[in-house]
């Protein structure tokens, strides 16, 4: 079981390195969106630091949304998605592998770029760690929830717009809890409880989302 998980992940990674733009585009988008805010709103560091958590998280959400197209679409078009579904292993396990690979390729780069963006937005150094932790826990949840949306819409022609309509309400709790945690860190308060809530959401997503994704794929590919 673990072997096939590793195989799916490494196949995804190899494929992605051949189409490097698929990885870089969401990260560039993330950086550019965050950079636009000081230019558009004004460079007052106190104001920027106040709204920085929200900006970074909304940008991360939008970048994730942008990256979902490639999660299943290419495989759907060339038929390898159907092949994946015909394999003797549980589909939920296989899609977990795909989503994990997707997070490695999009969530992880966002995570590593975030300290740079925190500097751009004049955030307090005490909040860097909180930002990192919320992104670490939150971006996998986004990948999992987004995968449900993508699986439902991959067979449709105008799936992209519908995907955002489906995904955004689901992402709102993550956005709210993460920004609350970073704000608490800015005021020097403990944000462990909020992180625990995010962690609970992550665990719930990891256990339940693969089944929803598998069921959705069976609807889209039939």
């Amino acid at each position: 079981m673990f072997k096939v998980f590793i195989q799916v992940v490494s196949k995804e990674l190899k494929g992605a390195f051949r189409r490097q733009s698929d990885i870089l585009n969401p990260v560039w988008f993330f950086i550019i969106v965050v950079t636009l805010f000081p230019l558009g709103i004004g460079t007052d560091p106190i104001l920027l630091a106040r709204i920085a958590p929200g900006i970074i998280w909304v940008a991360a959400l939008l970048a994730a949304l942008l990256s979902f197209e490639r999660l299943f679409k290419d495989d759907f078009i060339d038929g390898s998605l159907e092949q994946l579904m015909l394999m003797p292993h549980p589909l939920s396990w296989l899609v977990s592998a795909k989503v994990f690979a997707h997070w490695l390729l999009t969530g992880l780069p966002i995570l590593f770029v975030s300290p740079l963006l925190a500097v751009f937005l004049a955030m307090e150094p005490t909040t860097y760690f909180a930002l990192f932790l919320t992104l670490l826990i939150g971006t996998p949840i986004l990948s999992l929830l987004g995968a449900i949306g993508v699986a439902l819409t991959v067979g449709l022609r105008k799936g992209g717009i519908l995907l955002s309509l489906i995904m955004l309400p689901l992402s709102i709790p993550i956005l709210i809890f993460s920004t609350m945690a970073i704000d608490a860190a800015a005021y020097g308060q403990s944000y462990l409880g909020l992180l625990a809530l995010l962690g609970a959401m992550l665990v719930t997503s990891i256990t339940l989302a693969p089944f929803a994704i598998a069921a959705s794929l069976r609807v889209s590919v039939s």
Binding site: I148, A212, S216
Partner: peptide, 10 residues
């Protein structure tokens, strides 16, 4: 079927 899945996720 798709609508059922989305309703439950919601």
């Amino acid at each position: 079927r798709a609508a059922s899945i989305l309703t439950l996720v919601g």
